[in-house]
Amino acid sequence: MRVYLASVATDGKANSHALARPPVTFSFVQPTSVEAALRAVGTPGSVAIAGGTDLLLDFDNQRIAADRVVSLNGLPWKHLTRAGGRLVVGSTLPLRRIELDPRVAVDLPGLYQSVHAVGGVPLRHRATMGGNLVRASPASDLLPVLLALEATVHIVGAYGSRASSLDDFLRGSRSVDLAPGELIESVSVPYPAPSAYVWQRVRPAKDISQVGVAVARVPGAGHWNVALGGVVPRPIRSPSAERHLTRLRPKAEEITRAAEAASEGVAFATDRRASEAYRHLLVSVLVRRALDKAIPPEAPS
């Protein structure tokens, strides 16, 4: 005889029940200083919220539980500044503010395109860059662009600050290199940088991308960077594509070779959004399209 636990899905799979009003309880604090915030998130049983548009769904689905939620909304981390050739995005700045900044679309078109691809406007008024990084969804539309831009993650903790490349920061699916008690203060990327983000979805708007491809030309790099999203367990760079793309304006056959090579050795999943074979096909198409979109036109002679 087998006995079943009715209703509560213990495996976190699709049929756990998010009810109209799920039994979610926690206490709430909203520190107004970084020191207080670090103390609060360092307390066992605490989880930080920076927007919460993804985190709260996990509470509803009983994928996480916490005694206390620490809102980062009171911290002075909603800045968008430019210094030393880098754009610094405060971790709790709503995505919508990045999108509406008149210079981001010009200086970092790929970043603008990826931010614009996330949810709808009301969601982007709350969702934040820091939240997106910590949640580290394999299907994130932001991570490929930030990888291609060689973003730096600026982290504060009780024992000081540190900086990490995004590539090092991302560990796996929904897993990042952030110790208990640490918080992301900001993310920085070099600018200006020719860049583009293109994606394919079953439904064009408001969907999870089957594949996302970002390309960017970062100052000092010897080639175009190419990053792929929709890859399990985490978005990755594609060195096999990048090595064909050393010119600022690659030749057509170089782009073709890069597109064909882009997903070499990449293990895509077959899931409910796409098959592995289709994802490989999409990557080759989208790498070419991203480059076509990002490569600056020839200067008029």
Binding site: M1, R2, V3, Y4, L5, A6, S7, V8, H17, L19, A20, R21, P22, P23, V24, T25
Partner: peptide
Amino acid sequence: ASEARAAADAVRADI
């Protein structure tokens, strides 16, 4: 609603 949900989730059916 939360109490109702919590109670419903606590039912252990023998099936």
